[in-house]
Nucleic acid binder design. Structure first.
Lengths: 177, 177
DNA sequence: ACAAATATGTCAGCCATGTTGACTTATTTT
DNA sequence: AAAATAAGTCAACATGGCTGACATATTTGT
């Protein structure tokens, strides 16, 4: 292969003390971490993507299905807020899911302007099928790791998010912050 | 708030032993981990996205800039392989970057079919500016974590990727498998 | 030497999913 | 009765994936 080693990758084992710098003048292990976010995320969503394709759906459908499944009875505006997309973007995929009976709408009793979103049995089934390979991936990875890994991974990932996003969803039990 | 608590989220602290099940019949902490991948990734790329916008570029430009920066002299087909996109998709963004002088092409001496890709000074600068907030995010998070966190996080993230992807890039020093 | 394979580039069009802006309708709040 | 809120819709546009079909230059293999 007529290409010389540029020395920017693949040499982690030569310096066990980390903290040397890459071509960017930044700690190499952090630059590698940035890449790991890219690769891990891409691979992580690849399995559900395949399933979605066979249903004529995309990732956007998956997200809606997931969050409605996780918070049954959520309103459209709550969903918009979590996904951080516009209502026009949401409406395309939500319409598909409602038309094909994966999601059911119920008008709120107290405030009849609000529509509560729920998964049908069909919706729950698809939701499970989509998340299964991702859970599986975590379980396989955890089996290769020491105990306590998941908790620490979660804590670190939480630090990487914007606080607001977390609070708006993860920390919300229905009452309010 | 005319919305009752559905009990599917935000109650981690009530069961310190984990492993109870969510509405999916799956371990709740793993379902939450799936969500963390989504939120963390989204927030993680949000800062570079803002910078890119001011240059009229998108995420696709960022990826090209990044990998060319990390492996100076890589060929177009190597880049395609790492990104796992088609050459038509790549060509659009690569064209932009070359036209605006962020990336330089050099014909390989040995095999004049191959074009080696390099960042210009301008390209290096943009690359640094794009990655800076992401490195920053890691550093802030690490400061809140115990020592050894990064190594363990990286190992776990690596487990989550498809081996092939890793080997093709992370483990490649220029010679070939 | 010539045919085949390889590396790159390009045209044209399709699809998914994000965006903005402008409105409508129903319902609740003030 | 007016204003605010929740939801939905239409139209248009951008990004960045995709496929298929070719073109060109260069190297490799017979």
């Amino acid at each position: 292969m007529s290409q010389e080693n540029t020395g920017t990758l693949g040499e982690k084992h030569e310096n066990p003390h980390l903290s040397d710098t890459s071509s960017l003048g930044l700690p190499r292990e952090l630059v590698e971490a940035v890449e790991l976010m890219f690769f891990a995320y891409r691979d992580f969503v690849s399995d559900p993507d395949t399933i979605l394709e066979s249903h004529g759906f995309g990732r956007a459908h998956h997200r809606v299905l997931h969050f409605v499944g996780r918070r049954p009875g959520m309103s459209v505006s709550e969903l918009l807020h979590i996904l951080s997309i516009t209502k026009q973007s949401l409406s395309r995929v939500l319409k598909d899911l409602i038309e094909e009976k994966y999601i059911i709408q119920e008008t709120d009793e107290q405030d009849r302007r609000i529509k509560r979103l729920l998964l049908s049995a069909k919706g729950h089934e698809l939701h499970r099928n989509l998340i299964a390979p991702q859970i599986q991936r975590f379980q396989v990875s955890l089996a290769k790791s020491e105990s306590g890994t998941l908790e620490k991974w979660q804590e670190f990932m939480r630090h990487l998010t914007n606080m607001e996003t977390k609070i708006d969803f993860m920390d919300d039990t229905g009452r309010e912050k």
